[in-house]
Computed example of a mutant assay.
Amino acid sequence: MSEDILFERDNRVAIITINRADKMNSLDFAANDELVEAWREFNADDGLQVAVVTGAGGKSFCAGADLKTYTMDFANRPAPEFRSRYTNGLGIGGITRGMEIYKPIVAAINGFAISGGLELALAADIRFCSPNAEFALQDVKWGFHACDGGLIRLPQIVGHGNAMEIILSGERINAEHAMRIGLVNRIYPLDQLLQEARQYAQMLAKRAPLPQRFAKEVMKRSVGLPMEEALRMESRSFYDLGGTEDIAEGTASFREKRDANFQGK
Protein backbone atom coordinates (compact mmCIF):
# COMPACT_ATOMS: atom_id res chain seq x y z
CA MET A 1 0.00 0.00 0.00
CA SER A 2 1.05 3.59 -0.54
CA GLU A 3 1.03 6.28 2.11
CA ASP A 4 -2.59 7.14 1.26
CA ILE A 5 -3.94 4.15 3.22
CA LEU A 6 -2.19 3.03 6.39
CA PHE A 7 -2.68 -0.49 7.77
CA GLU A 8 -1.53 -1.20 11.33
CA ARG A 9 -1.85 -4.39 13.34
CA ASP A 10 -2.31 -4.02 17.09
CA ASN A 11 -2.65 -7.54 18.48
CA ARG A 12 -5.96 -8.73 17.02
CA VAL A 13 -7.08 -5.26 15.93
CA ALA A 14 -6.47 -3.67 12.53
CA ILE A 15 -6.22 0.13 12.41
CA ILE A 16 -7.02 1.38 8.89
CA THR A 17 -6.34 5.08 8.31
CA ILE A 18 -7.20 7.20 5.28
CA ASN A 19 -4.04 9.30 5.13
CA ARG A 20 -5.02 12.15 2.80
CA ALA A 21 -5.60 14.93 5.32
CA ASP A 22 -4.61 17.64 2.82
CA LYS A 23 -7.55 16.49 0.67
CA MET A 24 -9.98 16.09 3.59
CA ASN A 25 -9.33 12.34 3.37
CA SER A 26 -11.34 12.13 0.17
CA LEU A 27 -10.66 9.07 -1.96
CA ASP A 28 -9.33 9.16 -5.49
CA PHE A 29 -9.40 5.97 -7.57
CA ALA A 30 -6.01 4.75 -6.34
CA ALA A 31 -6.75 5.37 -2.66
CA ASN A 32 -10.16 3.74 -2.99
CA ASP A 33 -8.59 0.64 -4.58
CA GLU A 34 -6.05 0.49 -1.75
CA LEU A 35 -8.79 0.74 0.84
CA VAL A 36 -10.54 -2.18 -0.86
CA GLU A 37 -7.34 -4.20 -0.54
CA ALA A 38 -7.02 -3.22 3.13
CA TRP A 39 -10.48 -4.62 3.84
CA ARG A 40 -9.68 -7.79 1.93
CA GLU A 41 -6.51 -8.22 3.97
CA PHE A 42 -8.38 -7.69 7.23
CA ASN A 43 -11.14 -10.08 6.23
CA ALA A 44 -8.75 -12.85 5.18
CA ASP A 45 -6.43 -12.64 8.20
CA ASP A 46 -7.59 -15.05 10.92
CA GLY A 47 -5.29 -13.27 13.36
CA LEU A 48 -7.32 -10.07 13.08
CA GLN A 49 -10.70 -9.95 14.79
CA VAL A 50 -11.76 -6.28 14.83
CA ALA A 51 -11.03 -3.24 12.65
CA VAL A 52 -10.98 0.47 13.40
CA VAL A 53 -11.28 2.83 10.43
CA THR A 54 -10.44 6.52 10.76
CA GLY A 55 -9.00 9.49 8.91
CA ALA A 56 -5.71 11.30 9.38
CA GLY A 57 -5.65 14.72 11.04
CA GLY A 58 -8.33 16.42 13.05
CA LYS A 59 -10.64 17.90 10.42
CA SER A 60 -12.08 15.06 8.38
CA PHE A 61 -12.88 11.37 8.62
CA CYS A 62 -13.63 11.12 4.91
CA ALA A 63 -15.13 13.65 2.52
CA GLY A 64 -16.18 10.99 0.03
CA ALA A 65 -14.89 10.68 -3.51
CA ASP A 66 -12.17 13.10 -4.63
CA LEU A 67 -14.26 14.71 -7.36
CA LYS A 68 -11.26 16.52 -8.83
CA THR A 69 -9.64 13.28 -9.92
CA TYR A 70 -12.17 12.10 -12.47
CA THR A 71 -13.42 13.84 -15.59
CA MET A 72 -16.97 14.84 -16.43
CA ASP A 73 -18.54 14.60 -19.85
CA PHE A 74 -20.23 17.49 -21.67
CA ALA A 75 -23.57 16.79 -19.96
CA ASN A 76 -21.87 17.07 -16.55
CA ARG A 77 -22.40 13.38 -15.85
CA PRO A 78 -19.78 11.22 -14.12
CA ALA A 79 -17.36 9.68 -16.59
CA PRO A 80 -17.62 5.94 -17.36
CA GLU A 81 -14.57 5.16 -15.20
CA PHE A 82 -16.30 6.60 -12.15
CA ARG A 83 -19.43 4.54 -12.80
CA SER A 84 -17.48 1.33 -13.35
CA ARG A 85 -15.24 1.74 -10.31
CA TYR A 86 -17.78 3.05 -7.81
CA THR A 87 -21.37 2.61 -8.92
CA ASN A 88 -20.91 -0.79 -10.57
CA GLY A 89 -18.08 -1.93 -8.29
CA LEU A 90 -17.59 -2.36 -4.56
CA GLY A 91 -18.63 1.22 -3.86
CA ILE A 92 -16.63 3.87 -2.07
CA GLY A 93 -14.31 2.63 0.64
CA GLY A 94 -14.70 -1.02 -0.31
CA ILE A 95 -17.24 -2.02 2.35
CA THR A 96 -20.26 -0.06 1.21
CA ARG A 97 -21.36 -2.69 -1.30
CA GLY A 98 -20.44 -6.23 -2.31
CA MET A 99 -17.82 -7.14 0.31
CA GLU A 100 -19.26 -9.21 3.13
CA ILE A 101 -17.21 -8.77 6.31
CA TYR A 102 -18.73 -10.27 9.44
CA LYS A 103 -15.93 -9.23 11.79
CA PRO A 104 -16.76 -6.14 13.91
CA ILE A 105 -15.80 -2.75 12.43
CA VAL A 106 -15.59 0.47 14.47
CA ALA A 107 -15.48 3.91 12.81
CA ALA A 108 -13.59 6.68 14.62
CA ILE A 109 -15.06 9.77 12.94
CA ASN A 110 -12.65 12.64 13.49
CA GLY A 111 -14.41 15.50 11.70
CA PHE A 112 -16.33 15.63 8.45
CA ALA A 113 -18.13 12.49 7.26
CA ILE A 114 -19.65 13.81 4.07
CA SER A 115 -21.50 11.96 1.28
CA GLY A 116 -19.39 8.87 0.51
CA GLY A 117 -17.54 9.42 3.77
CA LEU A 118 -20.78 9.12 5.70
CA GLU A 119 -21.68 6.05 3.67
CA LEU A 120 -18.35 4.50 4.64
CA ALA A 121 -19.13 5.23 8.31
CA LEU A 122 -22.61 3.75 7.92
CA ALA A 123 -21.05 0.49 6.71
CA ALA A 124 -19.23 0.17 10.04
CA ASP A 125 -21.00 -1.51 12.94
CA ILE A 126 -20.23 1.00 15.69
CA ARG A 127 -19.50 4.71 15.27
CA PHE A 128 -17.62 6.99 17.65
CA CYS A 129 -17.03 10.64 16.78
CA SER A 130 -15.35 13.80 17.99
CA PRO A 131 -17.31 16.96 18.93
CA ASN A 132 -16.25 18.68 15.68
CA ALA A 133 -17.71 15.91 13.52
CA GLU A 134 -20.30 16.87 10.91
CA PHE A 135 -22.38 14.50 8.83
CA ALA A 136 -24.19 14.94 5.52
CA LEU A 137 -25.33 13.32 2.32
CA GLN A 138 -24.91 16.41 0.16
CA ASP A 139 -25.56 14.70 -3.16
CA VAL A 140 -28.94 16.35 -3.80
CA LYS A 141 -27.17 19.71 -3.89
CA TRP A 142 -25.27 18.57 -7.00
CA GLY A 143 -28.08 16.79 -8.84
CA PHE A 144 -27.83 13.18 -7.72
CA HIS A 145 -28.40 11.07 -4.62
CA ALA A 146 -26.37 8.74 -2.44
CA CYS A 147 -25.42 5.51 -4.20
CA ASP A 148 -23.10 3.68 -1.79
CA GLY A 149 -25.56 2.53 0.85
CA GLY A 150 -26.75 5.85 2.24
CA LEU A 151 -30.35 5.40 1.12
CA ILE A 152 -30.45 1.87 2.52
CA ARG A 153 -28.39 1.89 5.71
CA LEU A 154 -29.23 5.34 7.05
CA PRO A 155 -32.98 4.63 7.62
CA GLN A 156 -32.08 1.36 9.34
CA ILE A 157 -29.80 3.21 11.76
CA VAL A 158 -31.60 6.50 12.48
CA GLY A 159 -35.18 5.75 11.42
CA HIS A 160 -37.17 6.76 8.36
CA GLY A 161 -37.99 10.34 9.31
CA ASN A 162 -34.49 11.30 10.39
CA ALA A 163 -33.03 9.69 7.27
CA MET A 164 -35.45 11.59 5.03
CA GLU A 165 -34.41 14.87 6.60
CA ILE A 166 -30.72 14.18 5.97
CA ILE A 167 -31.12 12.70 2.48
CA LEU A 168 -33.65 15.14 1.01
CA SER A 169 -32.07 18.32 2.37
CA GLY A 170 -28.37 17.63 1.90
CA GLU A 171 -27.75 19.71 5.03
CA ARG A 172 -25.11 18.91 7.62
CA ILE A 173 -25.85 17.79 11.15
CA ASN A 174 -23.45 18.11 14.08
CA ALA A 175 -22.18 15.53 16.56
CA GLU A 176 -24.86 16.22 19.17
CA HIS A 177 -27.63 15.81 16.60
CA ALA A 178 -26.00 12.63 15.33
CA MET A 179 -25.84 11.24 18.86
CA ARG A 180 -29.46 12.16 19.53
CA ILE A 181 -30.78 10.24 16.51
CA GLY A 182 -28.53 7.23 17.02
CA LEU A 183 -26.18 7.84 14.12
CA VAL A 184 -23.18 7.66 16.49
CA ASN A 185 -22.79 5.60 19.63
CA ARG A 186 -20.45 7.87 21.61
CA ILE A 187 -18.70 11.26 21.43
CA TYR A 188 -15.12 11.65 22.65
CA PRO A 189 -12.75 14.64 22.67
CA LEU A 190 -10.78 14.74 19.44
CA ASP A 191 -7.46 14.03 21.15
CA GLN A 192 -8.95 10.95 22.85
CA LEU A 193 -11.12 9.60 20.03
CA LEU A 194 -8.74 7.17 18.38
CA GLN A 195 -7.40 5.84 21.66
CA GLU A 196 -10.94 5.24 22.92
CA ALA A 197 -11.83 3.48 19.66
CA ARG A 198 -8.70 1.33 19.90
CA GLN A 199 -9.43 0.39 23.50
CA TYR A 200 -13.00 -0.50 22.62
CA ALA A 201 -11.79 -2.61 19.70
CA GLN A 202 -9.32 -4.40 21.99
CA MET A 203 -12.21 -5.18 24.33
CA LEU A 204 -14.22 -6.60 21.42
CA ALA A 205 -11.21 -8.68 20.40
CA LYS A 206 -11.30 -10.43 23.79
CA ARG A 207 -14.82 -11.68 23.13
CA ALA A 208 -15.58 -14.90 21.29
CA PRO A 209 -15.09 -14.23 17.56
CA LEU A 210 -17.47 -16.86 16.17
CA PRO A 211 -20.62 -15.62 17.93
CA GLN A 212 -19.67 -12.05 16.98
CA ARG A 213 -19.49 -13.04 13.32
CA PHE A 214 -22.53 -15.30 13.43
CA ALA A 215 -24.59 -12.61 15.19
CA LYS A 216 -23.51 -9.90 12.75
CA GLU A 217 -24.36 -12.12 9.78
CA VAL A 218 -27.82 -12.89 11.16
CA MET A 219 -28.46 -9.21 11.86
CA LYS A 220 -27.40 -8.24 8.33
CA ARG A 221 -29.10 -11.05 6.44
CA SER A 222 -32.38 -10.93 8.36
CA VAL A 223 -33.21 -7.35 7.32
CA GLY A 224 -36.47 -7.42 5.39
CA LEU A 225 -37.23 -11.08 6.06
CA PRO A 226 -40.56 -12.16 7.52
CA MET A 227 -40.32 -12.48 11.29
CA GLU A 228 -40.73 -16.25 11.31
CA GLU A 229 -37.95 -16.72 8.78
CA ALA A 230 -35.65 -14.30 10.60
CA LEU A 231 -36.24 -16.12 13.91
CA ARG A 232 -35.41 -19.44 12.26
CA MET A 233 -32.15 -17.96 10.98
CA GLU A 234 -31.27 -16.76 14.47
CA SER A 235 -32.10 -20.13 16.02
CA ARG A 236 -30.09 -22.02 13.39
CA SER A 237 -27.08 -19.78 13.97
CA PHE A 238 -27.27 -20.44 17.72
CA TYR A 239 -27.51 -24.18 17.05
CA ASP A 240 -24.40 -24.05 14.86
CA LEU A 241 -22.44 -22.43 17.69
CA GLY A 242 -23.25 -25.39 19.91
CA GLY A 243 -20.63 -27.55 18.26
CA THR A 244 -17.73 -25.11 18.57
CA GLU A 245 -14.71 -25.33 20.84
CA ASP A 246 -15.22 -21.72 21.91
CA ILE A 247 -18.60 -22.36 23.48
CA ALA A 248 -17.04 -25.15 25.53
CA GLU A 249 -14.22 -22.81 26.54
CA GLY A 250 -16.66 -20.02 27.38
CA THR A 251 -18.83 -22.18 29.61
CA ALA A 252 -15.75 -23.69 31.27
CA SER A 253 -14.31 -20.24 32.00
CA PHE A 254 -17.62 -19.23 33.59
CA ARG A 255 -17.61 -22.26 35.87
CA GLU A 256 -13.95 -21.81 36.75
CA LYS A 257 -14.28 -18.04 37.25
CA ARG A 258 -11.44 -17.14 34.87
CA ASP A 259 -11.04 -15.22 31.61
CA ALA A 260 -11.87 -17.23 28.52
CA ASN A 261 -9.22 -18.01 25.94
CA PHE A 262 -11.14 -18.08 22.68
CA GLN A 263 -9.52 -19.52 19.56
CA GLY A 264 -12.22 -18.90 17.00
CA LYS A 265 -12.90 -22.62 16.58
Results as ranks from 00 to 15, higher is better:
residue 23 K to S: 12
residue 257 K to P: 00
residue 241 L to C: 06
residue 24 M to E: 13
residue 211 P to R: 03
residue 227 M to P: 00
residue 75 A to F: 10
residue 217 E to C: 06
residue 170 G to E: 04
residue 214 F to H: 05
residue 215 A to M: 07
residue 49 Q to V: 14
residue 151 L to N: 07
residue 258 R to E: 15
residue 109 I to W: 04
residue 95 I to E: 12
residue 186 R to T: 15
residue 238 F to T: 08
residue 20 R to H: 09
residue 100 E to H: 10
residue 208 A to F: 00
residue 33 D to M: 07
residue 4 D to K: 14
residue 126 I to P: 05
residue 63 A to T: 10
residue 203 M to K: 13
residue 189 P to W: 05
residue 132 N to R: 06
residue 78 P to M: 07
residue 191 D to S: 14
residue 71 T to N: 02
residue 46 D to P: 12
residue 225 L to V: 09
residue 128 F to L: 15
residue 83 R to D: 11
residue 186 R to C: 15
residue 175 A to K: 01
residue 202 Q to E: 15
residue 26 S to C: 05
residue 235 S to Y: 06
residue 40 R to H: 12
residue 31 A to M: 11
residue 181 I to Y: 02
residue 236 R to L: 12
residue 138 Q to F: 06
residue 4 D to P: 00
residue 192 Q to K: 15
residue 72 M to V: 08
residue 213 R to T: 14
residue 235 S to L: 09
residue 120 L to F: 05
residue 227 M to S: 10
residue 141 K to Q: 07
residue 114 I to A: 11
residue 205 A to Y: 01
residue 67 L to P: 00
residue 209 P to F: 04
residue 52 V to D: 02
residue 40 R to S: 15
residue 3 E to Y: 05
residue 132 N to A: 09
residue 124 A to W: 00
residue 245 E to A: 12
residue 94 G to L: 06
residue 173 I to L: 09
residue 10 D to A: 05
residue 208 A to R: 02
residue 171 E to D: 15
residue 133 A to Y: 05
residue 187 I to C: 13
residue 135 F to C: 08
residue 43 N to V: 06
residue 81 E to Q: 07
residue 183 L to H: 07
residue 136 A to H: 01
residue 134 E to G: 12
residue 24 M to C: 13
residue 204 L to A: 01
residue 103 K to N: 07
residue 116 G to Q: 01
residue 217 E to L: 02
residue 91 G to E: 10
residue 96 T to M: 03
residue 102 Y to N: 13
residue 50 V to D: 04
residue 61 F to Q: 06
residue 261 N to K: 14
residue 202 Q to P: 05
residue 247 I to T: 04
residue 197 A to S: 11
residue 162 N to P: 09
residue 260 A to W: 00
residue 80 P to M: 01
residue 51 A to Q: 07
residue 10 D to K: 06
residue 53 V to Q: 04
residue 95 I to M: 14
residue 223 V to Q: 14
residue 5 I to G: 03
residue 172 R to W: 02
residue 129 C to D: 02
residue 31 A to E: 11
residue 256 E to M: 14
residue 117 G to T: 08
residue 19 N to W: 01
residue 213 R to D: 10
residue 209 P to Q: 06
residue 71 T to P: 00
residue 139 D to F: 13
residue 59 K to D: 15
residue 145 H to N: 07
residue 136 A to Y: 00
residue 28 D to E: 10
residue 137 L to C: 11
residue 217 E to W: 01
residue 54 T to S: 08
residue 161 G to F: 00
residue 70 Y to E: 02
residue 247 I to Q: 00
residue 10 D to H: 06
residue 265 K to I: 08
residue 40 R to C: 15
residue 150 G to H: 02
residue 109 I to K: 02
residue 212 Q to C: 12
residue 117 G to W: 03
residue 81 E to W: 00
residue 90 L to A: 12
residue 88 N to I: 00
residue 79 A to F: 02
residue 199 Q to S: 15
residue 79 A to D: 14
residue 164 M to A: 10
residue 92 I to D: 01
residue 56 A to P: 04
residue 1 M to D: 10
residue 126 I to N: 03
residue 228 E to V: 13
residue 225 L to P: 08
residue 6 L to W: 05
